[in-house]
Amino acid sequence: MASSGLQIVGFLLSLTGVCATIAATFMVEWEKRFQVKELTYEGLWMSCISTTETTTCEIYDSVLKLPTEIQATRLVMVASLFFAALGLIISVFGMKCTRFMDAMPQGKGNAAVTGGILFILSGLLTFIITSWYAGRIVQLNQAAHHLQNKEFGHAVFVSWAGGLFTALGGVLLSLRRCWGSKSSTESIGTSHLLSTTNSKSNYV
């Protein structure tokens, strides 16, 4: 029961991380740029210009015209979500609280571990590309004019949290297999000891 509860905690952590990653991917506040009378937000899919009166958003028309950091971040975030989706599906089949693959305990455990590994991969991709994007913003900010200061948007912090939770949940799902195997070994050893003791007592 303890390993099953830990498995559920790992799955819920990863699920929370995936939700945060999805939100960050489509948020427009990846970068904030302050100018004299307006505030510009740049996301992976659109940009918005906010003034004291109105806010106007525009979807990016051409991918090739986008800056390198936006193109790369968009690609890696989509790949991260793809691996996370696979992890969600596979881990559901491998969790003890579900009825899938009950006739194949070994395969069920392997499915849980595979789902955990996919979550770890997804979380690492999200965390690494977000850190790279943040580093690019710092570099561009140092070279920019002092009237066009750039800052991290809320999406950067949401993405960092999403990657961390996704990877942490994947680690818990993967380690559960090791702990489960250890418990099974101890159970087998105990049963063997009891059977040996009982067989000896029959000779008395």
Rank of each mutant, 00 (worst) to 15 (best):
E38Q: 15
A24I: 10
V28I: 09
K37V: 04
L66T: 01
V63H: 05
C48Y: 07
T40N: 10
T68E: 13
L39E: 15
E29N: 14
I59T: 13
G43D: 06
S50M: 06
F34A: 08
V63E: 12
L44R: 04
D61E: 13
W30E: 06
A72M: 08
T40F: 02
V36N: 10
F34E: 11
Y60N: 02
M27P: 00
Y41G: 01
T52Q: 12
F26A: 01
V63G: 02
S62N: 14
D61N: 12
P67M: 10
E29A: 13
M46Y: 15
L64C: 05
M27I: 03
R74K: 13
A24P: 08
V36H: 10
T73I: 02
E31N: 03
R33L: 10
A23F: 02
I59A: 09
M27R: 04
T73Q: 07
S47M: 05
E31I: 12
R74E: 06
M27E: 10
L64N: 09
T25G: 08
C57R: 09
I70R: 02
S47N: 08
I49R: 14
C48M: 07
V28H: 12
I70H: 01
T25N: 07
K65F: 09
T51F: 05
I49F: 00
D61P: 00
W45F: 15
K32Y: 13
L64F: 06
L75I: 14
K37H: 10
E38T: 11
K65W: 08
E58Y: 00
T25D: 01
Q71R: 15
E42C: 07
S50K: 13
T40W: 05
E29D: 15
L39A: 05
K65T: 13
T55R: 09
T51L: 05
C57W: 07
V63S: 09
F34T: 13
I70Q: 00
R74I: 05
Y41M: 08
E53Y: 12
D61T: 13
S62A: 11
S50W: 00
I22P: 00
E38K: 15
T73N: 05
W30Y: 02
T54H: 05
L44V: 04
W30C: 01
E31W: 00
S50L: 02
E29I: 01
A24V: 08
K65N: 14
T68Y: 13
L39Y: 09
T52R: 13
T56A: 02
I49C: 01
T40V: 15
E42P: 00
Q35A: 14
I22K: 00
Q71W: 03
E38G: 04
T56E: 09
M46E: 10
T56K: 09
P67W: 05
K65A: 12
T56R: 12
E42G: 10
T51R: 03
S62Y: 08
L44Y: 06
Y41N: 04
T54R: 11
F26S: 03
I22G: 01
M46Q: 14
D61F: 05
L39K: 15
F26N: 04
V36Q: 14
E58L: 01
D61R: 14
Q35I: 07
T52W: 03
K65V: 08
C48G: 04
E42T: 15
M27V: 02
E58Q: 06
F34N: 05
F26D: 00
